[in-house]
């Protein structure tokens, strides 16, 4: 892992800024995400961590700074323009899973998963279904292939949403508080799936309030506070032995949980 420093990052944020009106949420953030890395973003609510991760796939348009994907600048249009790649291209390779799942309610589980590969990647239905069934098997929901999302539990919905994102075979997966909307007893099954992905070397950026999970699964932790990266380091340094006072206060509130 030491040669990570010399590797070129898959996705990179450079002096990233985002304002909503006069309110500046992100005040110049930098991040390099290397292949196989799992970065956890923690911080109090309103610190900008969700906005930050949503800027990485242009779900929010940054108001300053740059997003780079394999060192190429990402522009503000859907399609590529010369050397500047479009956010359509970016999103094909950077998957995202949402807090509220956002499954397509008018499609079955299987249709949800193949929608991206068939519509966006132009894969044949057969090919897409084979991969989809494999992924549904991995998240333990192969038997639910023909169910509609409304008939699934929250944890099952979120696992389908993860399979849907993976069906695009992305290089990076962005997870935005994926367990925050779940009943406590359903959190474990989703975390187990994410842990499995980390073990397989999936590159991920994870916004989470599950401190124990973040400490366990991530290779690096960023502590965001008031729109800046207030602390950054190994899970050991950030979560288990925090030095920064605000970080100490933040992390201590979660001790004893999980």
């Amino acid at each position: 892992m030491t040669d990570n420093q010399h590797q070129t990052p898959i996705i990179e944020a450079v002096d990233l800024r985002k304002s909503f009106g006069a309110h500046e949420v992100l005040k110049g953030l930098d991040l390099k995400l290397n292949r196989g890395e799992v970065v956890a973003l923690i911080g109090p609510s309103g610190s900008g961590k969700s906005t930050f991760i949503r800027c990485l796939n242009h779900m929010e348009t940054p108001t300053g700074g740059q997003i780079r994907f394999h060192q190429k600048l990402v522009g503000n249009s859907f399609r590529d323009k010369g050397d500047v790649i479009g956010f359509g291209t970016l999103r094909r390779q950077v998957g995202m899973v949402f807090q509220h799942f956002n499954l397509f309610p008018h499609k079955t589980v299987l249709q949800n998963v193949i929608e991206g590969p068939v519509t966006v990647l132009r894969q044949s239905k057969k090919e897409a279904e084979e991969l989809a069934m494999d992924l549904l098997g991995q998240v333990g929901l192969a038997m639910k292939r023909d169910a509609y999302p409304n008939h699934l539990s929250g944890g099952q919905k979120q696992r389908v949403a993860i399979a849907r994102a993976l069906a695009m075979q992305p290089e990076v997966l962005l997870l935005d508080e994926v367990t925050s909307a779940l009943d406590p007893e359903l959190v474990g099954e989703v975390l187990a799936v994410i842990r499995g992905l980390a073990d397989k070397g999936m590159t991920m950026a994870i916004v989470t309030h599950e401190m124990a999970f973040a400490a366990d699964v991530s290779s690096r932790v960023l502590f965001l506070d008031q729109g800046v990266i207030a602390a950054c380091g190994s899970p050991q340094a950030i979560i288990r032995n925090p030095e920064n006072e605000r970080l100490k206060g933040f992390v201590s509130r979660f001790h004893g949980q999980g």
């Binding site: 359509g88 999103r91 094909r92 998957g95 949402f98 509220h100 397509f104 519509t119 849907r164 994102a165």
Partner: peptide
């Protein structure tokens, strides 16, 4: 729900798709 648009966008769909 706006989440539907976001989910479609997140898998790389164009606004038209």
């Amino acid at each position: 729900d706006n989440g539907q648009r976001e989910a479609a966008a997140a898998i790389g769909m164009s606004p038209m798709q």
